[in-house]
Design a protein around this nucleic acid. Structure first.
Lengths: 246, 246
DNA sequence: CAAGACTGTCTATGATGTAAACAGATAAGC
DNA sequence: GCTTATCTGTTTACATCATAGACAGTCTTG
């Protein structure tokens, strides 16, 4: 296991607090968390595209290349950002049933995504291994305590919810941070264009939708009902799975 | 509606075959579809990162800047690629019930994503408006014909399935095109690392999983059972929604 | 036949991610 | 305490990228 430990990407080692024993040389001028904070600040303000090595370094008051003493490549920067942005997962209340527990988890996850919309722009290249991400994973698994689901069934159920939240938020935000007015305008424009292009002869089903007078048909209104509605649909499916297992 | 037509991004106008009446000047040396084909070839081979304006142009035997006579910006290239990669949606067999129809749709969608894994790397900035993408949308809506679902309920049900397929494939592929052996090795490595980091004291639920002897617990094995299993879970939820509506 | 519009090309610019070589700082070993 | 190895942040450099602007050739319309 020492070998596997050594093979761990440098960032993960640092995130897990694995320190090499004291060595000669100057002391580091800052820390991984400083890099994360600066990068998150940029991303919150201008999306993931606003995050570049040079801008993060400038934010810290150092040279671009100084970052490479802490991080091997830009992908590692994303790892740090993700871990820090999520923070530690909220523990699930032990008294409740699995449904309200996993609902609470999903909503906390959703809120995290809404606070940091750029998370959905981060290219996913590897499965989660950073400390805080694992706490989220653990917390979701805990939610299924007391159900007859086997461990891997719990895992795949969690993935289902995870996927649902990500997908929903992604669709509902139009992916880009926008003011409510901009979002509404974009919605109207999209509806107009759909109505123009999806003609009734070739796209009857789509045409039916665009002809509905309801303003936000196309938005999964995740703030309030829409999110819970869809989530409940997913949970209904999981419930069926639970009943089959019990 | 003419105004909305004129405001349409140039690419969409071309994709929909809206031609300006014949004008002076030399005839174009190639077509949008040529650009799409070249770009898709590059992306299939080396992922979305392998697609650059210059490489696409080189593939066609022209200069980088020539592409900008057909495309306003790189995002438009993605639009062309997506539309062309998906192709026209397969029509759903009219005899079947909604469940098998939407299942067929989901599997066709999944197969498309597997053929062109880079699709999941394309940043989603706008809702679908290109011709072929609308046929996929239409085809999914058709699958709910005969159910008591209202149009917007059909739409949100489709989004649920859409989200599920995207999410599943993304997780199962590790997002990067790999050979089966590489994927298995990556899986084992991940499991080892998880076991090392997610210690039983801090992460009991995760630890339980890693201790299971099953080789591919963490893979949603979407080739065969896993995909249909998860999909059925989602469809069970939609079924509950249908029964509530009927 | 003339004029104007459109073609692909050339050149140029500012970002970007990262490799390599460097001078100063510091702790371990004599 | 001094040397030496090693770490620090910096500087310089380079390849690649998306895209703007000016240009000369080509073709259709008047």
């Amino acid at each position: 296991m020492d070998e596997a430990m050594a093979d761990l990407p440098q960032v993960l080692q640092r995130l897990w607090g694995i320190e090499a024993p004291a060595r000669p040389g100057p002391k580091p001028a800052f820390q991984l968390s400083d890099i994360g904070r600066a990068a998150i600040k940029l991303a919150d303000a201008g999306g993931l595209a606003a995050v570049s090595m040079s801008k993060v370094a400038a934010e810290l008051g150092f040279t671009t290349m100084s970052l490479y003493r802490y991080i091997d490549a830009k992908d590692d920067l994303y790892v740090v950002m993700l871990d820090q942005a999520f923070g530690e997962a909220p523990g699930s209340p032990p008294g409740e049933d699995w449904r309200s527990r996993i609902t609470a988890w999903a909503e906390a996850f959703r809120d995290g995504l809404r606070r940091h919309p750029w998370i959905l722009q981060v290219p996913v290249t590897e499965p989660p291994l950073s400390p805080n991400q694992l706490t989220w994973m653990e917390s979701a698994m805990d939610a299924f305590d007391g159900t007859p689901l086997a461990p891997n069934e719990r895992l795949s159920s969690m993935l289902l919810v995870n996927i649902y939240v990500r997908g929903t938020v992604q669709l509902a935000m139009g992916l880009l941070t926008r003011t409510p007015e901009e979002a509404a305008a974009a919605d109207r424009l999209y509806n107009d264009r759909l109505r123009m292009l999806a003609t009734e002869d070739r796209f009857p089903a789509i045409a039916t939708i665009t002809q509905q007078p309801i303003p936000e048909q196309l938005d999964v209104d995740f703030e309030t009902e829409g999110f819970r509605d869809g989530l409940n649909t997913v949970l209904d499916g999981i419930q069926a799975r639970i009943e089959r297992a019990g």
